[in-house]
């Protein structure tokens, strides 16, 4: 019997497998992805591998992307909404090298978008796959550090601890003070971490026509939100969920609708606001 994990011969750059991972690892990740799609919001454990980039720098997203990407794809990689941040450049370069894939900065042209901390402003469409890099996949982790405990809480849909935490925030501050990685309920069953995106982006996850895949490499979890799936940001009747807003508009494109980054532009502390989504901003100028 042949060894099914033997690297195939069509290897980019000769020394490594196509898309870096060996075929057996890809199959393992692909099976985990299908389970994740079948149970939306549930964190599927997978045999995460060491990647050539450090844990915490996108290895989960990279493994998911490596398991799905092919030569017909067009890949976009963003970090903080921008295509030209160093880590985004580094990951894009990695896939251009090992997967011979076309890359783009244009949201509309991309078939696979790997992201850290943002969802593009341009609405996604059916057929696109958004791959999130996830540092801590467990939404209850900061409330309960033990995996054995949180796993039971998910199994029982026992989410009181999260409600209490949000309510305490209201009691203390008069509003929910959580600003990013804001927990969501997926299809009425699992509370899920949307990864550290600003809560501004949460509404974009709800019933999105695109497929959302979430990869946590160090924690070895994959989860998913299929297209058209309800994703509700947790809130209370008397304290409904709301997103950030700015009184300023983008200094470059004038947008009043996008997420703005604040920059300090002189020693006196003068502020300037520009779109975090560089592709969206350039398209409007």
């Amino acid at each position: 019997m042949p060894d099914t994990s033997t690297p195939d011969t069509t290897i980019a750059e000769g020394a490594y497998n196509y898309a870096y991972l060996d075929e057996q690892t890809k199959r393992m990740i692909r099976r985990a992805i299908l389970k994740a799609v079948a149970v939306p919001g549930y964190q599927v454990p997978f045999g995460g591998r060491e990647m050539p980039l450090p844990y915490g720098w996108g290895t989960g997203g990279i493994q998911v992307t490596a398991a799905i990407i092919g030569r017909d794809d067009t890949l976009k990689v963003i970090d903080q909404g921008a295509d030209d941040t160093t880590n985004a450049v580094s990951i894009r370069r990695f896939f251009a090298r090992v997967a011979e894939v076309a890359t783009t900065t244009c949201t509309e042209d991309a078939t696979v978008i790997q992201t850290r901390h943002r969802v593009p402003e341009t609405p996604l469409k059916e057929g696109q796959i958004l791959v999130f890099q996830v540092p801590i996949p467990e939404p209850l982790r900061m409330l309960e550090p033990r995996e054995t405990e949180t796993r039971t809480l998910h199994a029982l849909s026992e989410y009181g601890v999260m409600q209490v935490s949000l309510y305490e925030s209201i009691a203390r501050h008069g509003r929910i003070s959580k600003s990013y990685n804001y927990p969501v309920m997926v299809n009425g069953r699992y509370i899920m971490s949307p990864s550290p995106i600003p809560k501004f982006d949460n509404p974009k996850l709800d019933r999105s026509p695109a497929l959302q895949l979430y990869g946590a490499g160090r924690e070895k979890r994959i989860y998913a939100v299929p297209p058209h799936t309800p994703v509700k940001s947790l809130d209370f009747d008397d304290h409904p969920f709301e997103v950030e807003h700015w009184s300023e508009c983008c200094a470059l494109c004038g947008s009043k609708e996008s997420f703005l980054d604040e920059m300090i532009v002189d020693d006196a502390g003068k502020r300037l606001f520009v779109c975090s989504d560089t592709d969206y901003c350039e398209g409007r100028r």
């Binding site: 195939d8 069509t10 497998n17 196509y18 898309a19 075929e23 890809k26 199959r27 692909r30 992805i33 299908l34 799609v37 079948a38 398991a67 799905i68 990407i69 092919g70 030569r71 017909d72 497929l211 299929p226 297209p227």
Partner: peptide, 20 residues
């Protein structure tokens, strides 16, 4: 015939089926 690329292409079809 082409294990890496055949598997990738077919998996995306299967993923499309599971997602829809």
């Amino acid at each position: 015939a082409d294990p890496a690329h055949d598997a990738q292409r077919l998996f995306r079809r299967v993923l499309d089926a599971f997602s829809h």
